[in-house]
Design a binder for these strands. Structure first.
Length: 220
DNA sequence: CTCCAGGGGGCCA
DNA sequence: TGGCCCCATGGA
């Protein structure tokens, strides 16, 4: 696992995730990017920023209709508007992100998962990139990559099983987990760009790709 | 035209 | 638990 991380870092360099100005913006982005291309999320966030709506107080106050209108480019706007409201209420009731970050990782995760519209990946993205606590974020890219590299024998592995599998292989460091996940996303986008479809990327190609990366990195 | 993105909830067997 | 369907926009 460490080897995979090292090769990715050598190839792509640090990714400086999560792209956002504030912790709250990280969380908003985590909800908006659910099954949605990040480029569309950026448009929605730009709309919210333009209207000065990137705070839990402002999200609560704005009308549902207006909120939906602004986040429309991110898709699923009916559900996501509701989720943004629910999450903002949670933050306000909890006394703000600063105060909530004093909770243990486990307690915080339980609370986030109890909010309708926040599942494991979204919760973990918030915990890692906004609350800066060491948890590894699993997504479709993670499963795809680890499957192709032979670390798992199916992409249907349980979320928490895979998360813990990665976590026990690495030091429990938020910085490291965050960089690793960002690199995995970057890797898939970069690699798939060379192929018409991700499904065509065979394990053999992937290994060849990694050998190339390793070779490029070693003779410099 | 089809496919699919940095998912999650509800329903049903 | 595990499989399916729905949600919706925009770029390739």
């Amino acid at each position: 696992m460490r080897e995979i991380f090292n090769r990715l870092l050598k190839c792509f360099g640090p990714q400086y995730w999560w792209p956002a100005d504030t912790e709250f913006e990280v969380c908003i982005g985590a909800i908006l990017t659910q099954n949605t291309a990040w480029s569309n999320v950026e448009k929605a966030i730009a709309n919210l920023k333009k209207e000065n709506l990137l705070s839990p107080e402002a999200i609560i106050k704005v009308s549902d209709g207006r909120l939906k209108e602004l986040i429309r480019p991110a898709g699923f706007y009916n559900q996501k508007a509701e989720r943004l409201k629910a999450f903002s209420s949670f933050i306000l009731n909890g006394g703000g992100i600063e105060k909530l970050s004093r909770l243990s990782l486990y307690d915080l995760r339980e609370k986030l998962l109890s909010i309708k519209g926040i599942g494991k990946e979204t919760a973990d993205s918030m915990i890692l990139y906004a609350f800066k606590k060491p948890i590894f974020v699993v997504d479709a890219y993670t499963k795809r990559l680890l499957f192709r590299l032979g670390k798992i024998d199916s992409e249907k592995v349980d979320y928490d099983v895979l998360r813990e599998m990665v976590e026990v292989c690495l030091p429990s460091d938020a910085e490291l987990f965050g960089e690793f996940h960002a690199l995995i996303v970057r890797q898939c986008k970069e690699f798939c760009k060379k192929k018409p479809s991700c499904k065509d990327c065979s394990l053999k190609d992937m290994c060849v790709f990694y050998r190339k990366v390793a070779a490029e990195g070693s003779h410099r």
